[in-house]
């Protein structure tokens, strides 16, 4: 009986030790922080880091999908070849053009829409929904509708003739096809920017505007000196996200090129992503395609860094 009692005491002691170990772990902010972050980290590592690492390794190989087992290490040859390919530079320029045209426009448009739907207007809920719908609609569906609208002879192409454009099928014309892609991007992305800006605008303290009004600040001055600085961190977020998505634009181009070569017409809509897809997937040169992706990664990284620096300096 006594021995039995001792056993129980020992078990209680052990349980106590276990509980205190768990409790001390639960007490540690660092451990809890890591544990809560762990699911994301594991999935991120599995779905993003590991594939990127694979791409990085492949970028130094002469690797083909058809015979991955025969991949050979070729050093920087893929990179050298890409940097000597005029098509790559053409693709980079097109990507930059989309970003340079579309990102500022969608940012400004998003902010304007957010300001509008932040007013005390009748039916503002409906407008918020209407502006946001394109963002959650399938890119292919929107592209298909726009392709019908931008056909030669429609009221849309007719309307644009007032601005000096020819009445042509935009996505089949090498002069307008890239602009068509940029318009598609702006149309979709502005809704997202609007929602993000809207949440930021609702955080701006009302008394700042009241103080501004009392000091005689015009509406423009209030916008320039209160709203813009207040939403600056959001602007950085909106611009960064739009830049990355602008560089990654693919679905719209694939839809335009449905029955032709990717980047159609005549490569006028080729971008860095289509360049990668063309080589890495379509031509099965996964080593070469991976090198393009790695270069692309660094291009985006540098541009995002420059954006941050620029916005920080201006602030």
């Amino acid at each position: 009986m006594a021995a039995y009692g001792n056993e129980n005491a020992e078990m209680r002691l052990n349980n106590g030790k276990k509980q205190s170990w768990l409790r001390s772990l639960a007490d540690s902010d660092l451990a809890v922080g890591w544990l809560f972050t762990l699911p994301f980290l594991v999935l991120w590592a599995w779905w993003f880091f590991y594939p990127f690492l694979q791409s990085f390794i492949r970028s130094f190989q002469d690797a083909n999908f058809a015979s991955l087992g025969d991949a050979k290490f070729i050093g920087l040859q893929n990179y050298v070849q890409i940097l000597n390919d005029s098509e790559f530079y053409r693709a980079v320029i097109h990507s930059l053009q989309i970003v340079v045209i579309a990102v500022p426009l969608q940012t400004i448009l998003g902010l304007i829409m957010a300001i509008l739907v932040n007013q005390k207007l009748k039916g503002k809920g409906m407008f918020r929904t209407l502006f946001f719908i394109p963002y959650i609609t399938s890119q292919i569906a929107i592209t298909t509708v726009f392709m019908m609208l931008f056909k030669q002879g429609t009221f849309v192409t007719e309307f644009f003739t007032f601005f000096g454009f020819d009445n042509a099928t935009w996505f089949a014309d090498t002069r307008y096809a890239l602009l068509f892609v940029a318009i598609l991007f702006i149309f979709q992305q502005a809704g997202f920017s609007m929602i993000v800006y809207l949440s930021a605008l609702q955080e701006v303290p009302k008394d700042l505007y009241e103080a501004g009004q009392m000091d005689g600040a015009s509406k423009w001055a209030q916008f320039r000196y209160i709203t813009v600085p207040y939403v600056k961190p959001i602007t950085f977020f909106v611009v960064s996200v739009a830049t990355i998505l602008g560089f990654q634009i693919y679905d719209q181009i694939a839809a335009i090129s449905r029955y032709g070569a990717l980047g159609s017409p005549a490569g006028a809509t080729s971008t860095v992503v289509t360049y990668f897809y063309q080589h890495g997937i379509r031509y099965m040169e996964i080593g070469y395609g991976s090198a393009a992706v790695v270069l692309f990664f660094f291009i985006i990284m540098i541009i995002t860094f420059l954006q941050k620096k620029l916005l920080d300096d201006k602030g």
């Binding site: 089949a172 980047g263 159609s264 005549a266 490569g267 379509r282």
Partner: peptide
């Protein structure tokens, strides 16, 4: 695939691009 893409691109550049 590369050949077909190149052929189409080149002909499109003349017919649709005015090259």
């Amino acid at each position: 695939k590369r050949f077909r893409d190149e052929l189409v691109n080149q002909i499109e550049s003349v017919v649709l691009g005015g090259v």
